[in-house]
Simulated scan of single mutants.
Amino acid sequence: MLVLVIGDLHIPFRAHDLPAKFKKLLVPGKIQQIICTGNVCNTDYLHYLRTIAGDVHLVKGDYDDNPHFPSSLILNHPPLRIGVLHGHQIVPAGDTQSLAAAARAMDVDILLTGHTHRFEAFELEGRFFVNPGSATGAWHPTWPLRDPASVAALAEKAAAKAKEDAASADKKADDPKAKKGVKASDNNKTEDAAKDKASESKDSVKEGEHKKGGEIEEEEAKEAAAPVPSFALLDIQGAVVVTYVYQLIDGDVKVEKIEYRKNVDSTSLALQRGAAGNATAVGASAGGHGQYGGR
Rank of each mutant, 00 (worst) to 15 (best):
A166G: 01
D196T: 11
A152D: 13
N187F: 11
A178H: 10
V241A: 13
T190C: 01
D235G: 05
E207V: 02
K171T: 08
L248Y: 04
K222N: 03
A167T: 09
P176R: 08
N188G: 07
D192G: 10
L154Q: 13
D165E: 15
I236S: 11
E215F: 03
G213A: 12
K163F: 03
P144T: 11
A194P: 02
E207Q: 10
S185T: 14
E207G: 03
D196I: 06
G238H: 06
S201K: 15
D147I: 03
A239Y: 03
K206S: 00
D192L: 14
E200L: 12
K177L: 11
S185F: 09
D175T: 09
A194H: 05
K222H: 07
V240C: 04
K179P: 05
A152R: 15
S201G: 08
E215H: 08
L145W: 07
A149Q: 15
K211L: 01
A152I: 09
Y244A: 01
K206I: 00
E156N: 09
N188C: 04
A221R: 13
N188Q: 12
G251E: 07
P176E: 04
E220V: 12
A239E: 15
S168G: 10
K211I: 01
A155P: 02
K177M: 11
A225W: 10
A159Q: 15
A173G: 06
Y244W: 08
K157S: 07
A162W: 00
L233Q: 05
V245A: 01
D170T: 07
D196Q: 12
S230N: 08
A226C: 03
A158Q: 14
Y246Q: 03
D147R: 11
V151T: 13
A167D: 04
P227Y: 02
A159I: 07
S150W: 10
D165Q: 03
A155H: 13
Y246F: 14
P227A: 03
E218Q: 09
V242A: 03
A167G: 05
S204Q: 13
D174P: 01
K157W: 03
A158E: 03
G181H: 09
A155T: 11
Q237I: 06
Q247P: 02
N188H: 09
D235K: 12
A178N: 10
A178S: 06
D252I: 14
L233G: 04
V242W: 02
E156D: 14
A225V: 15
E209T: 02
N187W: 14
V242I: 14
K161M: 06
K161R: 10
K172N: 14
S185A: 12
K172C: 10
I216P: 01
I216K: 13
G214S: 13
G208L: 03
T243H: 10
A169P: 05
K180N: 12
L234V: 07
E207T: 10
S204P: 04
Q247Y: 03
A160R: 08
A166T: 11
L145Y: 04
A153S: 13
Q237N: 10
K161P: 01
A194F: 00
V151G: 13
A239G: 05
L234K: 02
A232C: 15
K183P: 05
A239H: 11
K157E: 05
G214L: 01
K183I: 04
V182E: 13
D203G: 09
K179D: 06
A224Y: 05
V245W: 02
A152V: 06
